[in-house]
Design a binder for these strands. Structure first.
Lengths: 225, 225, 225, 225
DNA sequence: TATGAATGAGTGTTCATTCAT
DNA sequence: CATGAATGAACACTCATTCAT
């Protein structure tokens, strides 16, 4: 199952192989239960090489967190057209988010489960990424208020709480979609848009949210597949 | 800080002391980083006694999960008047939930962080509790539809997704409230009710949700205290 | 060659067994080349027990140094009659010193070779013991001057240097006596008394130093053996 | 602080750079704690080159011992006028010895501390050099006896012991002088001449040894500098 | 000549777990 | 009922050493 044993690779390539193996192992076993032996074997290299390139288990885990956090935020960023209306941006962002977490379950487990469970310095590493996302959602909510020609008389902390709730819901739905066969990224995004934009009250009243024309909730290749 | 060393306690009492120590240690250090030595010392007993009563680290952790899961579900159950309208029940349940998680941060960490991060058999143990809560919320949503005199033409899986989203949002807000000084259980519950019941769209339109008369968002003793 | 495997010893006894094994191993292999595995095996216990009782390799080595330093200074102290003339005291002290180092070659190696070669905190540990001995010799030299009814117009630092030289000569002769079959502690002591008390010049002139009546250069049992 | 990285040096030069780095590292860290990585980096070359030129860590250390032993004996030899009286030769030899050890503390540490502490084959390597010095001192003592027109009725082994004592005292004083600010090589030599030539007894009687006219206790360039 | 890439073997240390009392 | 004494098994980490280029 490990990578084919190829010898004499340039350092950059080997490092990525190691990070791949580490993300997979950390994501499945957890930070402490993962052994450097197992990671090295899965990467197809000897343990000393892992230490030569990545210094320590702690540094290796931190590198995993950073790489996966960057990949996730980049995926969301790339999926959102910043000039679109607020609900379109949210719809697109959620689509990109659920698509990415579905395609990278181990990376998602590292970020969402493992990094938060093993104290400093890992927790703050992933907290920084999460804060970035929460800030983005907060801006979206304020933009929606502006678009509705309303002063956001909601206090700051109230908006922060709403953004937290939305992000938390998205995280839970990502786990749920990964664990429930047959639920696509698009469906998860639609469920969350309905929930968050219309609210349960409106849903009950028969007024669901519907995707704006032209919004792209998931990557093109996913739709065609 | 450990329990005062008293001799000859009845078994049930000793066991609770051990579970107290274990929940605290597991919640703060994590499952793997917690050592049986530390737990035994914190409980004020010798290590062999922990093994005599609780068999193994795995069994001890499982016992922690079960006890904390039971305590949490019981707290929510006790906070909800089952004959009240759906939104009242949700409001009361959320109040009870945020109150309990705020008062039991270690137990909440065991359930929400540690138990889910260390594979089987712990993950399914806590998944069972979570499924129970999700099922309760699902029933609430269906009841709300009935109260609104609408057939729930929403497909089953759609409702399940909504319930997952709501529960996920609640979990995130519990962490947020615990980490943000000055946010009370009542405020967290109100934020989530607004978010989930009215939806962001209605909030923007100036139609927030407001607590029904007679609903108790938090346990009575909390209000009086 | 290891101690007979006896089970369930009281802690104090086991600790001495471990120190015995450690002194022997450190003395022969050196601090770094000695492995905790080897020490544990030689002591007839498992490695975790060594750690349980003695904490770390560093602490174990420090404990060895302290025990051997205490034993050596105690042996010298016990061999010297403090009310005797200065040269008698030196003669007795040297006898005790050479006897002890001959009977404890591993302990002597720990003190004289290993502890000084591996930096702090070991070096200062043994330096303290050595300083004590140098101070004792310094007092002896000053006492000799007083006995000769001379003001010691030798400057302080000069006397310190003489004491250093005498102690250094004793250390070298201890190694030499241990390495040269047939050289007894008594002979080594006599050689050094001649060298230091009479000086080469006097020896050449046919005026060697001779042991004062009643002085005991070596332990009684050694003489009879 | 390492040598400037210059390419294409002749082999002999590169080898000396490596030995310089090795002596410094071995002298400060000890044989086992010194890593080939550190030595290579300090020498400004890659690790394989060190192995190409010097074969192994053991061989490298042996080469260090040999070079430093040769340098020390050569320094002493160069400082002594072989046709002078015995005490002059000793005085000059000691001066050269203390000067050299003060100027080469790392080399002295290698010879006096490290090489003797790590077993064969290093111990016998340095023992050979030491034996040479002891033999030289033995000859000096016998020559002094001849000069005093006395048959050395001292037995061979007695003279050997005296030489051992003198050399041991010199070694200890070298360490002492290096560790004690303000003690010069000349003072150390004078102290040891007094101690060994006159003896404590004569010192007490007010008959110290005094340097013969024309004797050179330290290298000429030191005096002028 | 010179080196970046790579590893086998071993180190100190920890921990869950079990006896004998 | 309760514990001091003890260990098998594993883990993170390091280092001398060697290829392939």
């Amino acid at each position: 199952m490990g990578a084919v044993k190829t010898k004499r690779m340039p350092r950059a390539v080997r490092e990525q192989q190691m990070l791949d193996a580490a993300v997979r192992t950390f994501g499945r076993r957890g930070y402490m239960a993962a052994s450097m032996d197992e990671i090295a074997e899965l990467a197809g290299v000897s343990k000393p090489l892992v230490y030569l390139y990545l210094n320590s288990k702690e540094d290796l885990f931190t590198a995993c967190i950073r790489r996966e956090a960057a990949a996730l935020t980049e995926a969301v960023r790339a999926g959102v057209r910043r000039e679109a209306p607020a609900d379109s941006q949210l719809w697109e962002g959620l689509g990109a988010f659920f698509t990415h977490t579905a395609q990278n379950p181990d990376g998602w487990a590292v970020l969402h489960l493992q990094a938060r469970t093993h104290g400093e310095p890992f927790a703050s590493e992933v907290a920084a990424m999460r804060a970035e996302i929460v800030a983005f959602v907060t801006q979206l909510i304020l933009a929606a208020a502006r678009e509705a020609h309303r002063d956001p008389d909601l206090p700051e902390s109230e908006v922060a709480g709403l953004a937290e709730a939305l992000v938390g819901a998205a995280e839970a739905l990502a786990d749920w979609a990964n664990a429930t066969p047959g639920v696509t990224a698009r469906e998860a995004a639609a469920t969350l848009m309905n929930f968050s934009w219309s609210g349960l009250g409106n849903l009950m009243a028969g007024r669901p949210w519907s995707p704006p024309a032209g919004a792209q909730p998931v990557a093109a290749h996913e739709v065609s597949g």
